[in-house]
Each structure stands twice: as structure tokens, then as C-alpha cells.
Simulated assay, not measured.
Amino acid sequence: MKILKIYMQNTTMKKLFFISLIAVAFLSCKNETKSTEATGSQVSAEGPERTAKQSDGLTLLKGDFVYYDGAAVLQTHANIYGVFVTDKMHELEKLVQEYKTAPTDMIPVEIRGKITDQKDDKILWEHKVEIVEILNVYEPKKEDNDVVKLSE
């Protein structure tokens, strides 16, 4: 009988221990979520912490630019954008001429622009961009020149 009492006490203690352990773990997770929200460590894209450049609706794009035969294209690591032919696009074309060795060379650039997916009669690419600001034009790296020329 004495052994049964000790066993019952131990199983009751084990149950209480596991229940309290689960309760502490659950409450700790709940407090962690509250503390993250209370400190405000998550910055919203629409919050007041945004700078003026982040609030102007423009997107920063880095990629390879080419303008040939009346059509302009910007190829980023994720997408290919048809570029609207505007004064800024012509300004960018003048800047990239310095680095071109052939008319179809793609030159690395960094721009800010307005992205749209609206239908256009001239630009048939799904994604389109209007260049608003030219940030940088980079000299192409020799090892990135992977164009195969079939004839001279």
C-alpha cells in the first residue's frame, strides 16, 4: 500500500510537472509575440519610417540595358522589362554609348522608375518601366561577355 501511495504521488507530480512545463512554454511564446509587437521591431513598408525616396512610388532596378532599332529593354536578375522611349531613356542611351563596342551590347545600369503591366501597342513585354532617375552606369565586366558572334 505504501508503494502505491508513493507511485501515485510520483505520477501526479510527473503530470503536474509536464502540465506546468507546457503552460510555461506556451506562455513564453505568447509573451515573445507581444514583446516583438510592443518594441516595434517590425518596420512596415507603409510606416512613417520610410524615406522620401521610398514613398515616391518608384522602384530601384539594377540590370543590363540595351537600346537597339527603336526598342529598349532592361534585363534584371528576375525579370525583363520593356522600357518606354522617353527623354530619360535617351539620356541613359547616351551614357551607355561610352561602354558599347557593338550596337547590341547590354550595359549594366542602375535606375529608378515606374513599373507597369498595362497593355501597350509598341512594347509587348509583360513588364514595362518608365525611367525617372538614372543612378549609375557601370562598365561591363569582360568575363560577363558571353555573346556568341556567328559572323563579322
Rank of each mutant, 00 (worst) to 15 (best):
V85L: 11
S28Q: 12
A102Y: 15
P108Q: 02
Y99I: 08
S55Q: 14
E37Y: 09
T101H: 10
E126W: 06
F84Y: 15
D146L: 15
S55R: 13
G63E: 06
F84C: 04
F18D: 11
L61P: 01
E139Y: 01
E91C: 04
C29H: 12
D120K: 06
K2E: 14
I3Q: 10
D64M: 05
R112Q: 09
A38E: 15
L150D: 01
D87R: 10
I111V: 10
W125R: 07
S41P: 01
M106N: 03
K53V: 08
Y67T: 07
E46T: 15
S41L: 14
F65M: 08
K128D: 03
S44W: 02
H90D: 13
T101F: 01
S20P: 04
T76Q: 10
E32A: 13
V83D: 09
I115S: 06
V132M: 14
S35F: 05
A52F: 01
A38R: 11
I6M: 11
Q118E: 13
V66M: 06
D105A: 02
L60G: 07
T116C: 10
G113E: 14
Q54E: 15
E126S: 08
L21T: 08
T33M: 05
I6S: 07
G63V: 09
E46Q: 10
E91H: 03
G113F: 13
E37T: 00
A102S: 13
G57T: 02
Q97A: 14
E91Y: 03
K53A: 12
K100H: 04
F84I: 09
Q75T: 12
L16A: 07
A71M: 11
I115D: 04
H77I: 13
K14G: 03
E37P: 04
V132H: 08
A102I: 08
H90C: 02
G63A: 06
